[in-house]
Amino acid sequence: MSAAAPAADLMSPLALFMHADIVVKLVMIGLLVASVWTWGIIITHVTRLRSINRATDSYERDFWAAKDLDAFHEARGKEEIPTARIVTAGLGEWRRSIGLASSDRSGARERLTTVMSAEVEGELDRLSDRLNILATVASAAPFIGLFGTVWGIMRSFTAIAGANNTSLAVVAPGIAEALFATAIGLFAAIPALIAYNRLTHGLDRFEARLNRFADRFHATLSREFEREG
């Protein structure tokens, strides 16, 4: 039992890190920093997406129940949510269009579609900011960890050749240190990959929701064009 305890201490994560080559240490540190950064992005995006969905639920419910859209927009048009900004863009274009001397309603409807579609795309760009980092970590981290592993194993084989001793007691610590780099790479990559897929799916659903809202609002403004005409 007394021999097993030192062996276990040598195989602990801290011991594996401390005994690793400087290159492998740098790989491990970089991967740990990437993992912390990844979790920060994940928590930020999950929290923000849930908050925006709740705020959008409230805004849409009150918007479609409102009798006076101008009064509603005056009261809640400055809310920092995508649907409020879509309404602001749509109403702005609608007011500019009805103020024109020309009665080209078809052109006005096309401009409304363009303006609100551009606003939806802009909102999705803002919401998806830094998601590319998750994709990069998910794809690159295993290979960076593998580089640390290959480097560490090469170092271990060099040490074995110098010592002229191929016993497991000599080989195992160096190889374990090297494989630990791959383990850290997977530790960083797996959450990043899962989170990227889930967040992308959530953003796709939210994009569809914004497009449905924009389409309904476009139909509402089109009816207003008919009344103005």
Rank of each mutant, 00 (worst) to 15 (best):
T113P: 01
G77E: 04
L26H: 02
A101C: 01
G99A: 15
I52F: 03
A141H: 01
S51G: 11
A219G: 04
M154N: 15
E93H: 07
A66G: 03
G30C: 12
L100C: 08
G202L: 09
R223Q: 09
A183W: 03
P13I: 09
A183R: 15
S97L: 10
S167T: 15
P6V: 07
A163S: 14
S128M: 00
I29P: 13
A188K: 04
N132S: 15
E93I: 13
P82D: 05
A15K: 14
E207Y: 03
V87C: 08
G185C: 07
R227N: 03
R155H: 11
V23A: 07
R111K: 11
A20D: 04
T166D: 01
V171A: 10
V137L: 07
T166P: 10
A5N: 10
L131N: 14
L186E: 05
V46G: 03
A118R: 14
R205C: 15
A7T: 08
E123M: 06
H218S: 13
F225Q: 11
F213H: 10
G148F: 10
V46Y: 08
N197W: 00
I81V: 11
V137R: 02
A214S: 15
S103C: 05
Y196S: 03
D129H: 10
E224M: 13
I184Y: 00
A195C: 02
G122R: 12
R216M: 06
S156L: 04
E224S: 14
T47C: 05
R209C: 06
A181V: 01
L179G: 14
V150W: 04
F147E: 08
T113N: 15
L26W: 08
V87R: 02
V171Q: 11
T83W: 00
R105Y: 10
S117I: 06
I190Y: 12
E80H: 09
N211A: 05
L14D: 06
S51W: 05
G90W: 00
V27F: 02
S35G: 02
F17Y: 13
S51A: 12
G99E: 10
H201Q: 08
I86L: 05
G148K: 12
I144E: 11
R85E: 07
F187A: 14
A183C: 11
G202W: 02
A89H: 03
R96N: 14
L168R: 11
A75K: 15
G185H: 04
I81A: 03
I41Q: 00
R209D: 15
